[in-house]
Amino acid sequence: MFRHTMLFLGYELGNVRRNPVWPLFGILQPVLYLLLFAPLLTTMTKGGTLADALRMFTPGAMMMIALFGSLFTGFTMINETRNGVLERLAVSQAWRPAIILGRVIKDVLVLIVQSLLVMGVAMLMGLRLGVASLLLMLLLMAATGLFATGISYGLALAVRDEGGMSQIVQFFALPLTLLAGMLLPISLGPQWMQTVARFNPLYYSVEAGRSLFAGHLSDSTIPIAFGLFAVLGVLTLTWAVRSLRSLAG
């Protein structure tokens, strides 16, 4: 089982190695946000410096790749439901969860590299970050990515239609982004928004990210986010693996 997961992972990483530019495109958006949006926030923060703005804003910008980047990874699999690749793998000796797990782990690894790059840019711009915060943030990104890629592969296998899937992703992505306070903290908003946000899992990862970046490592938001995404990650991955079965009609 572990061996098959590693084999699929190796294969997927081979594909990434042959085409390394795509993941770089993925970080363009958050980097632009850091360069062109974060400076606008300086007056809103207590300290009033760019470093303060970055401390508040970078976690949200990073969660954008964890959400958007990951939600779209499943698209590659829709084609494979038709061109026979999954059909062939389904009747091979492969351990079925490995087909999904190999890809998910690849996506998470790519996400971690992207996160490092985005944090690198933020640090160049003046953000200061402790090692523990940095490592925990990477872990949090991985957990969030696990959840979002699980949804993405599950959707791809359940919907099996590019048009339908992009509609669904578009439909959910924007409200999830806004109601997670990715751009600006939800605490700035009215009470009803704060209440609604509590039903959005991403709200917890953004809040936990902000606590990490602020250096408040003992904040309760952090264990809550990790616990939540551990559970959600397992659920969405299980759903994705089970959706493989529906291929057979």
Partner: peptide, 21 residues
């Protein structure tokens, strides 16, 4: 599954990678 080979009507070769992979 250990005893069979299966070539589907659609083929089932990954388009994006080299065939050797």
């Amino acid at each position: 599954r250990e005893k069979i080979g299966y070539v589907s009507q659609a083929g089932g070769v990954d388009d994006n990678a080299p065939g050797r992979e």
